[in-house]
Write a protein that binds this DNA or RNA. Sequence first.
DNA 1: TATTGTTATACTCTATAACTATA
DNA 2: TATAGTTATAGAGTATAACAATA
Lengths: 167, 167
Amino acid sequence: MAEKAQYEELIRQFSAFGAVKRELGRILPADCPGGSAAVLTLLGRHGDMRMSKLAELLAVDMSVTSRHVAHIADRGWIERSPDPADKRSRILRLTPEGQTQLDELSERTTQLLAHRLSDWTDDEVGQLAGLMARLRASFDDCRSAVPPRPAAPSAAEQSTRTPAITT
Amino acid sequence: MAEKAQYEELIRQFSAFGAVKRELGRILPADCPGGSAAVLTLLGRHGDMRMSKLAELLAVDMSVTSRHVAHIADRGWIERSPDPADKRSRILRLTPEGQTQLDELSERTTQLLAHRLSDWTDDEVGQLAGLMARLRASFDDCRSAVPPRPAAPSAAEQSTRTPAITT
DNA sequence: TATTGTTATACTCTATAACTATA
DNA sequence: TATAGTTATAGAGTATAACAATA
């Protein structure tokens, strides 16, 4: 358990991180904003998946996911095939054009980081990535562990989407 | 200089960090969104300053700063006094009410982090904060060092604001 | 003429709620 | 009745451009 002053310092760094995020956003292609880039990256990393799985990985509401996905589908970067096992679902898959776009994204961001972090060692980059991964994990763990009722959180409580109205 | 795969991993962590940011945003008081909180925090940390200095610390355009500042001034959390040395400028200063609001913010965010990072050591928290500070510094350095003409970047190039039209 | 700060407008990301079509 | 996904609407953050007051 750390000191309060350390948490305050950490919060300040979180806030300042926005500037880094914005600079990375500026190098994106015109019709591929951050949300689209995130979807392409996750599909490239984890392979074909359903909307709900993608929403979970993005850690945003399904409605948000739906809009990002529609945007990149309009541009032919992904295909949405019906899921034979469940006609409500759609399977998302990168098209060759999507892969090309993803390669372009990777090229640009990698190049920017290579410039900006030219004096960072391989080990330091790994440390930062590792600590940020652990940070995310610490927040994820608590999302299911903390809620009011300590026992067996329901599927609805863990869901990333707007709860349906239980009339 | 690190490997391309490491940069890609780092980018993924940057993207996932949004979930942490959003969770922190959810605990803010109703009339104190993230932008207002950032302004209060910087004024508490660095003391009285002018709009332009604040915009630089926030690393956003002055127009954005102006809106955040207007929001918290409307609530009586800061005073905007005319700068005797330059009548175009305004000096921003936390009011006692602003300090109270800032204390409340600090209390809430500290408490959330204490919960989420309960299994992090003091040293680990410090490492993450340190690496993020260095990350920001690496990006800042390049902002003034990289532009097209290598020699003596003009004031306009370093400014955080929309350049005036030079008619 | 240049700079400080404000305002108007537009774009991106997000969440909530209501809706559909399946299950 | 519950779930997968879509769409409409609203709120926050940001950037660009045009503007007023002052240097």
